[in-house]
Design a protein around this nucleic acid. Structure first.
Length: 296
DNA sequence: GAAACGTGGAC
DNA sequence: TGTCCAAGTTT
């Protein structure tokens, strides 16, 4: 048995029943799920995906609404630029591809918000093509099982794709199955913390396991703390704008953060990013919001 | 290639 | 309680 075959057998018996994996899911549904899942856990994506697909069953439906509605619908999934790019992506698909999600990898990669992972994921899972699909789960599984390292180092796209290519069966359909199986394995068994090795189909062949599961050595790279960052301030500002039923006066936004310099920087950042627009002289709205001018 | 970019749950 | 982590992309 190859690693891919083991993984597929395990997947067939243990895969989660996720809505975007249903056979009747459209390529658009797959694309939406992939974008929502970028850095966001499955449990938070599921309800958001259902709501999104109900409101906008096609790219054309989303493209017909302003980006502000996409940003609102995104809610608290995080990284709201993804909502904006998904909207831009829908507009681009209407313009370039007649409202269809393209099946060609290069055309996918040319869309806003679609990078190396997402493009290959859609080409593979929505269209059944044969491409290595490498996300953080796959990188960790390959790193441990094949290379014997406790965890994947920094992403090296070309090398990561080549490593996964080595493990991929020849048949496109089976290769797609292998990719989703590796991802699922990394998500629920070969996890970053406390991997469930006794439940792993690779337990007897995993290079890391055979080496005694050595821990990661050296100090872990420091992560940026969230509290007090511009990101937090942007989040607070956007939260107010999402709930707005009209233009939000500057004075209202001033309440979310006391540091004026940082507050101004965060707001101008949101405007530069295209998430927020000035409205009149001293108010702001989500990009694309068109409120009636208030009359006294 | 590093840094920026949200949010919430688990340990 | 604070750190770590979650199907990445863009600049």
């Amino acid at each position: 048995m190859t690693l891919a075959e083991d993984a597929i057998a395990w997947y067939d018996a243990n895969a989660r029943d996720l809505p975007w994996r249903q056979p009747d899911t459209t390529p658009w549904g797959v694309l939406v799920s992939e974008v929502m899942l970028q850095q966001t856990p499955v449990v938070r994506v599921e309800p958001a995906w259902h709501a999104w697909m109900t409101r906008w069953p096609t790219p054309a439906a989303l493209a017909a609404d302003p980006p502000s509605e996409a940003i609102r619908m995104w809610g608290r999934l995080g990284y709201p630029r993804r909502a904006m790019r998904l909207h831009a992506c829908a507009v681009a698909m209407v313009e370039r591809h007649g409202g269809d999600v393209p099946s060609d990898l290069d055309q996918l990669l040319a869309l806003p918000g679609v990078g190396t992972y997402t493009g290959r994921a859609v080409a593979t899972f929505a269209y059944g093509q044969r491409h290595p699909v490498v996300d953080t789960n796959v990188r960790r599984v390959v790193s441990r099982a094949v290379e014997g390292k406790p965890d994947a180092g920094p992403a090296t796209t070309a090398a990561d794709l080549a490593a996964m290519e080595e493990l991929l069966p020849a048949s496109p359909a089976v290769a797609a199955r292998a990719s989703i199986a590796f991802m699922e394995l990394g998500a629920i068994v070969c996890t970053a913390r406390s991997p469930r090795c006794p439940s792993c189909p690779f337990e007897k062949v995993c290079a890391w396991r055979l080496d005694g599961s050595p821990p990661l050595e050296g100090p872990s790279r420091k992560r940026q703390t969230y509290a007090g960052t511009d990101r937090q301030v942007r989040g607070l500002l956007l939260e107010v704008l999402r709930h707005a039923t009209g233009p939000v006066p500057q004075q209202r936004l001033d309440l979310v953060w006391t540091d004026e310099v940082q507050r101004a920087r965060a707001l101008s950042g949101l405007v530069e990013d295209g998430l927020v627009e000035p409205f009149g002289t001293a108010s702001f709205v989500l990009a694309g919001d068109s409120f009636e001018v208030q009359t006294l």
